[in-house]
């Protein structure tokens, strides 16, 4: 088997918006980065510490992906750091809005390439890369968090069944 698809269950997802960092200057986001214990990544990048992953989505806009936590601790823990960072900041728990999938294996990039216009070759989408893009006409966030041939896909819950069926179909020839 050269490719494997799995559903990463019950991840805690928080969308973080910091208007003060829209120009790419993370100078005054210290309180937030300290609370998260990680460095917020720049355009097209991810950063991670332990089981916590941050993905750049747009200027001043990140997706945080953390271990399962039913208590909403990640969102609640950001309230005070956000106040200290400045006006027009937000952290919203969107765990129920997305399904998190992982596609792993030597052929994973080839499977994705059937429906994705991003160049997934290592030289342009290497470890630590991310993109908010289209995959098989579904809007997704795509990331390659580390050195392994593993791609993490965040897709809207309502699109997840379609996307999973598409991925299973696209992977048939790699079985």
């Amino acid at each position: 088997m050269t490719v494997e698809l799995c559903d990463v269950a019950r991840r805690t997802l928080v969308e973080l918006r910091l208007s003060t960092a829209e120009d790419g200057d993370l100078g005054n986001t210290g309180p937030v980065q300290a609370a998260l214990d990680l460095t917020l990544p720049g355009p097209g990048r991810t950063s991670q510490v332990g089981g916590r992953l941050a993905v750049w989505l747009g200027p001043g806009w990140w997706l945080l992906d953390d271990r399962p936590d039913e208590s909403g601790g990640l969102e609640a823990g950001l309230v005070h750091p956000l106040r200290a960072t400045g006006p027009r900041t937000s952290a919203v728990d969107v765990s129920a809005g997305f399904v998190v999938l992982e596609l792993t294996g030597p052929s994973a990039a080839e499977v994705l390439a059937h429906g994705c216009s991003i160049d997934l070759h290592r030289r342009s989408f290497g470890p630590g890369s991310s993109a908010r893009t289209m995959l098989a006409k579904a809007q997704v966030v795509l990331a390659r968090p580390d050195d392994g041939p593993t791609y993490r896909i965040w897709v809207r819950t309502s699109f997840s069944r379609y996307l999973v069926e598409w991925l299973l179909d696209a992977a048939v020839e790699y079985r």
Binding site: P43, G44, S117, I118, R132, T133, M134
Partner: peptide, 11 residues
């Protein structure tokens, strides 16, 4: 300007 070159259908 922020994401680099992307396919037209994303816009």
């Amino acid at each position: 300007p922020w994401c680099g070159e992307r396919e037209e259908t994303e816009f």
